[in-house]
Nucleic acid binder design. Structure first.
Lengths: 129, 129
DNA sequence: CTAATTGCAAACGTTTTGCAGCGTT
DNA sequence: AACGCTGCAAAACGTTTGCAATTAG
């Protein structure tokens, strides 16, 4: 893998966390500020490569793929009200892997995405309680 | 929601389990045998409606949505070798919901899809062991 | 030099939608 | 009769790909 200005910009932008869990489109929109001529195709190609190289993670959530800079085991809540994708540190990995192995499978990776209401939305609608 | 021949055929076909965890395309191909004139758009519309009505579940896995007739809590393994979507009864729901609530969220639903090698592929490649 | 990477545009697979007509109630 | 549902075709959407030109090692 060679160096390229475009890939460097994309990686540092996603890693900065400023975009949360962005889609390719969102990365494209944001990286244009540093790289005005960058094409959407290049963003897709680079995000894919970076995931392949283990630099980023991809989340299959709601239509478009979302990218995550945080590679430590953690999971997500997709809020049904505000649409946010919230990080959720959950301690279940060991148990999941053990149970799947007991059923004869070999787990390489997994992602848990829950749906519901995030704490921000819940506290906002708590005016009445 | 009115009755329609098309929706009845789709629901009973998916419920039969004969298709495993089919995509809309696969349902369309199969339901044509009973309903030769049915259009792909109708299949999409009905699958969406049936999920909305709580008759089927949708799995966001690898490009196309897959549909599942089994509404009981269970999860899936997407095999990296054969591509199968294998049912995986995992006992983690209670723990997940508890942990998410401790973080201030309210979980409505969740799905766990793991990636790895399914037991069938593993035993097949076990000739040497 | 050479091979990876780029921008562009076209193509792809999946899903949604507008519409006129048909079927259920 | 009213309104949901259908088939069809077009379009929307996210993503991938072919290509000639550019650029990094």
């Amino acid at each position: 893998m060679r160096h390229s200005r475009q890939r460097d910009e994309i990686l540092s932008l996603v890693r900065s966390g400023a975009l949360g869990h962005p889609t390719a489109q969102e990365v494209h929109d944001a990286v244009r500020k540093a790289c005005p001529a960058i094409s959407l195709g290049t963003v897709y190609r680079n995000l894919h490569q970076l995931v392949e190289a283990g630099e980023l993670a991809a989340l299959e959530t709601g239509g478009a793929l979302h990218y995550d800079w945080d590679l430590r085991p953690h999971h997500h809540l997709h809020c049904n009200r505000c649409g946010a994708l919230v990080d959720l540190p959950l301690d279940v990995g060991r148990s999941l892997r053990r149970q799947a192995q007991a059923q004869g499978h070999d787990i390489h990776a997994y992602d848990i995405t829950m749906r519901g209401l995030c704490s921000r939305c819940l506290t906002k609608s708590d005016k009445h309680s």
